[in-house]
Write a protein that binds this DNA or RNA. Structure first.
Lengths: 152, 152
DNA sequence: AACTAATATATCGTATACGATCTAAAAGTC
DNA sequence: GACTTTTAGATCGTATACGATATATTAGTT
């Protein structure tokens, strides 16, 4: 019943609110992604690829904040599903470019309705609120990451 | 370049803002949790246990939104580390109660400073903003979960 | 009491995450 | 040009998540 109890209470933690909300939203995507045969992280990778171009593994990683330890196996699974191809470059043989197959490109048309469907499921009073929340989260991420390097 | 492109742009997605911010914040916890020898989900379970009592696996799961498939292995790891004990009840042999060992209780004193340290790392202009963000996230989680049952 | 339904965990399989390390190739240096 | 450093991915080990199923036990029904 001391002061620390309030500070350590689960529901008071911003981190838990984030963790729980993130998982809840990802679960809300499941019924929409299952018909497409993809997982939520795969959907994020496809969002990057649908924007065009043939990014390298590392470029996708920069967008999603994921490293090759996560991306390489995931991209290989997507390759096996026929959604994309992984081409090791000849100019710089360290690099691997990712490009969508026709099947991967076709999925985009099936996905266009997803953001709107989810926006409805968010059930917010106003879109503006959701946009504000989104921007606050991007800000928070930036501040937390900025504070990360102990050498700064 | 049609309207759908904006809707499918990665940075426009609230879900991605959540996903990325959640992972960034969890990573910010790592340097603080490593000295305690625990992971972030284990820290969340300890927050529940430090509140007192000997909750069942399912009760911890209700608080954290996690099921036994995730909790049972995690709690077993924590048991092996000597942080807690898993007692199958004799009254109802299906139930397993979790109670902290002295070592598990001692960890609390090492953790009391963590929320404050993180609050600083969030680098927000005001605490009020962070509290507002936290509450918005809890609201969002409630709305998304409420919309989940397709039979409702 | 025998049978059925519901409940509480546990287990299994698959897919992330991520720190640490490995490998190969490119870049920089003397 | 041989040597060192850096870089891009890949691999390994461990720890979550979570849908699906299994197991054991209790509750409910007739």
């Amino acid at each position: 019943m001391n002061a620390a109890d309030g500070a350590l209470r689960l529901e008071n933690q911003l981190c838990f609110a984030l963790y729980a909300a993130s998982r809840a939203v990802i679960q809300a995507y499941q019924p929409l992604l299952k018909p497409l045969g993809i997982t939520y992280p795969q959907y994020l990778a496809l969002l990057v690829l649908w924007e065009g171009g043939s990014p390298r593994v590392g470029e996708i990683g920069e967008r999603l904040d994921l490293d090759s330890a996560t991306l390489t196996p995931m991209l290989k699974r997507m390759e096996k599903q026929g959604l994309l191809a992984r081409d090791r470059q000849t100019v710089d043989q360290r690099q691997v470019r990712i490009r969508l197959t026709p099947a991967g490109k076709r999925l985009k048309s099936k996905a266009v309705g997803i953001p709107h469907t989810l926006a409805c499921r968010y059930g917010a009073e106003s879109i503006r609120q959701l946009l504000g929340l989104r921007d606050s989260l991007h800000d928070l991420r930036g501040r937390v990451r900025a504070g990360a390097p102990a050498t700064a």
